[in-house]
Design a protein around this nucleic acid. Sequence first.
DNA 1: TCGCATACATAAGCAGATGATATAAGTGTC
DNA 2: GACACTTATATCATCTGCTTATGTATGCGA
Lengths: 141, 141
Amino acid sequence: MNELELATGLMRVRTMMRLLDFPRDRSFTSMSTLGHLERGGPRRLTELAELEGVTQPAMTQLVSRLEREELAERRPDPEDGRVVLVAITQQGRDELARRREALAKRLADAMAELPEADKAAIAAALPALDRLVTRALGGNI
Amino acid sequence: MNELELATGLMRVRTMMRLLDFPRDRSFTSMSTLGHLERGGPRRLTELAELEGVTQPAMTQLVSRLEREELAERRPDPEDGRVVLVAITQQGRDELARRREALAKRLADAMAELPEADKAAIAAALPALDRLVTRALGGNI
DNA sequence: TCGCATACATAAGCAGATGATATAAGTGTC
DNA sequence: GACACTTATATCATCTGCTTATGTATGCGA
């Protein structure tokens, strides 16, 4: 496999996911942040900023928005008074689940039209892709 | 394969691509638009807006930015005086190529750490993913 | 040729990002 | 234990890219 083919192909996947992931009422960064909180549990604000590749002030804003909508909450860290731990709320989990279901349905519709061999190839690649993502992002995802 | 697993996995791919795709000096929509122009040749402004899932005024703005940077250009349509055809320039192609190479290198670094079986699974899935994207976006990509 | 539809441009406003800087809490040194 | 230094988060001013609403020019059918 050519490196450029991999890059081009995965960029097209990115474009597809962006277009299938509506409504756009929330930013992608906010949903991705919720995803991290769900996967990895409460995290420091600064750590979240690094994970999402945004600045700390941007993450402060984002967490404030999530808090206002009650999708996440700030907690003090008992071990360090300067730290804010951000955690996902049940509402946040529900919102994530709703979005993922809507997206999964749209994907399933497109998958249904594919030949069986293609479905099998994609299914077989999912665990490998997951490991690729983990490697690419330094294992902190 | 579970539908939700597919959705979750591809969302992680999307997150990875977003984080690997720096510098962020140009918006994702603008690079994606250039990609469409490269793949499919000159297109109407309105058609581009639909492809990218943005409004027509947003695409007018985006094309103006691309034109200012000489990555794309406006042309009149000889058959319809109202129409603007947008085309990629050589500079636009070069910029796309540069970005893809940088991205390909980062991906290759992560791929290098994967077991051979994973690499093979991903390589085998690429054509299938390409067809999935084409189906999901209505074949107009 | 009049009226409506279509294609694009312009204008005003907002969300979400940035960099610079302030505040508050912890840490180390003497 | 007081000082300077570092770290974690918040605030401020600003920018970019999107939105909706509206304007303008061209095309087309009755």
